[in-house]
Design a protein around this nucleic acid. Structure first.
Lengths: 119, 119
DNA sequence: ACATTATGCAACCTCCTTGTTGCATTTAAT
DNA sequence: ATTAAATGCAACAAGGAGGTTGCATAATGT
């Protein structure tokens, strides 16, 4: 699996979804992402308040989420507000739907084959 | 965010989806998962053949996927076959749909509020 | 002006992840 | 019976992830 040339991980669509999944693959980050899904942007301080870790740790998590394109930040005054970003989520959903679809049709083919076998 | 008591990451549904996302959050594992979506079970050797890493590494990845419930294994003869497992995928999709839904309705509420403001 | 709040940066630590290698074991093939 | 194939287990190493602390800086509040 040479990540340089044709990596089956990228399948038909040439994207690395593993980056996004990795971003969601940490409970703290998933909690932040989940929380921001109400659309309200929040500052780092606010997001750190009820976290049982330092503000710096939360900052790092937010950067990971932002790199993955799951949230966006913009500075307003002295604070940086982080907001939900739906595009990547949509792509993740589309990808999982596609995988599920492939599996479904594989099932169908098998079913048809077996039924045809009985006739 | 004490993982022991009420962690916002688990939201309304008390599951830790971050485990599943973490499993998909590695390019090699995502590639394997993607590949198995055609429904055909494959042995470790087969899955290792076109991977640019050792069989042991692939074995570890498969165990991670299995722990996350994304694949299932069963021994047949001397080899262990790994097969796609759709349930967890369905749950992941449902979760992401729910998050997207929350964001959508937040958008709607905002839109209604703004429109009502103009009247 | 001065204190406070919100953040950024950098160094550091620890542990888990990812990958390796070597050897043992079980099963199949000849 | 021997050989080859498929796997499991354990020890190991390197690097990255997740977290901390200390200090510097920019923007607000009084």
């Amino acid at each position: 699996m040479s990540k340089t040339e044709h990596n089956p991980a990228y399948g038909e669509h040439d994207r690395d979804f593993s980056v996004m999944f990795a971003a969601l693959g940490d409970p703290t980050r998933l909690a932040i992402f989940d929380r921001l899904a109400d659309g309200k942007p929040r500052s780092i301080s606010v997001l750190s308040d009820d976290a049982d870790m330092t503000r710096q740790a939360v900052t790092k998590h937010l950067r990971v989420l932002e790199t993955a394109g799951l949230v966006q930040s913009h500075k307003v005054g002295r604070e940086s507000q982080y907001a939900f970003c739906p595009e990547q989520l949509a792509e993740a959903r589309a990808y999982l739907d596609q995988v599920a679809g492939r599996w479904e049709s594989a099932l169908m083919r098998l079913k048809t084959f077996v039924e045809g076998d009985q006739d």
